[in-house]
């Protein structure tokens, strides 16, 4: 019996019925290796609708590789990623995004030459118009509804003071918040966050936690990769622990805290 199956039996105390109801993301037996190095081995993972699922693990455990497989950046050697009934494996990143999967990158990936507002409007237009629309005479400035929505989202991440500033002039922490806004504006069914608070000061980290909690109330499903345990235990409904490319434990934050395999493989002597 796999780790995932083991966990399914004893998780129902959090209100989820057995048989993984409303499964949004299903990672099925994914395997990925680079030049003989097994980055991911036999990874099985289910993410439920509306939950915040954290993936933790030591450096080199395969967390980012797993996210890259989910968004189409990497193709798995074996296995499949199924999102909301659609197989993501083999699809290109833009197709996966159009299905409702947005990603926030580990290192800020924004449009440096564009303003903060433009950075957020680009994904908003993508959500509305699809992956391509030839509209050379449709004015960007005339997009009043989307513009207002973008301004609201920028306000929610605390960047309203820099609305018309070019992204290139922003601090790293602000770029991360901008990236978050770029993800949120699309109202994705699944938001994948790769270390969303890395590089942020504690105050900003707490603000981001509050923001993500607020989003959670809206029912958006999230997968978070994070090193900061404060963030993980503040947000996660369930946690999966990756070590050496394998999932060694899955469960609620309390279960993970008390799992001896996690302590041994990831936390060591450190107290959670």
């Amino acid at each position: 019996m796999s780790v995932a199956e083991n966990i399914r039996d004893d998780e129902d105390d959090r209100g989820f019925k057995s048989g993984i109801p409303d499964k949004v993301l299903h990672i099925d037996d994914v395997h990925k290796s680079f030049a003989g190095l097994h980055a991911l081995s036999d990874v099985d993972l289910d993410v439920r609708k509306g939950e915040t699922h954290a993936i933790i693990g030591p450096n080199g455990a395969g967390k980012s590789t797993l996210l890259n497989v989910c968004v189409g950046r990497l193709k798995p050697d074996r296995g499949a990623v199924i999102f909301d009934g659609d197989t993501l494996t083999g699809k290109s990143p833009h197709e996966i995004n159009q299905l409702g999967v947005a990603r926030v990158f580990q290192t800020p990936e924004v449009f440096l030459d564009l303003t903060v507002l433009e950075n957020v409007m680009v994904p908003a237009l993508s959500k509305r118009d699809g992956h391509f629309k030839l509209n050379p005479f449709k004015s960007f400035a005339g997009e009043k509804a989307i513009r207002q929505e973008a301004i609201d989202v920028i306000h929610s991440v605390g960047l309203h003071a820099q609305l018309n500033a070019p992204a290139t002039s922003m601090s790293r922490g602000d770029k991360r918040r901008l990236e978050l806004a770029m993800g949120l504006i699309q109202h994705p069914k699944l938001l994948l966050l790769d270390e969303p608070t890395a590089g942020m000061a504690r105050h900003d980290t707490n603000a981001t936690i509050d923001l993500l909690k607020k989003i959670k109330e809206g029912g958006m499903t999230k997968v978070i990769i994070e090193h900061d345990m404060h963030v993980v235990f503040s947000l996660a409904d369930r946690i999966s622990v990756l070590a050496g490319g394998r999932i060694i434990a899955q469960g609620t934050p309390d279960q993970i805290k008390n799992d001896p395999r996690v302590k041994e493989a990831y936390l060591g002597e450190e107290q959670v």
Binding site: H94, N97, A102, F111, D113, V122, S126, G130, H131
Partner: peptide
């Protein structure tokens, strides 16, 4: 302009 700025990122925004 977004292509010029960061084509890779644009792919991940669904374009």
């Amino acid at each position: 302009k977004a292509i010029k700025s960061n084509q890779n990122r644009l792919n991940y925004t669904g374009i």
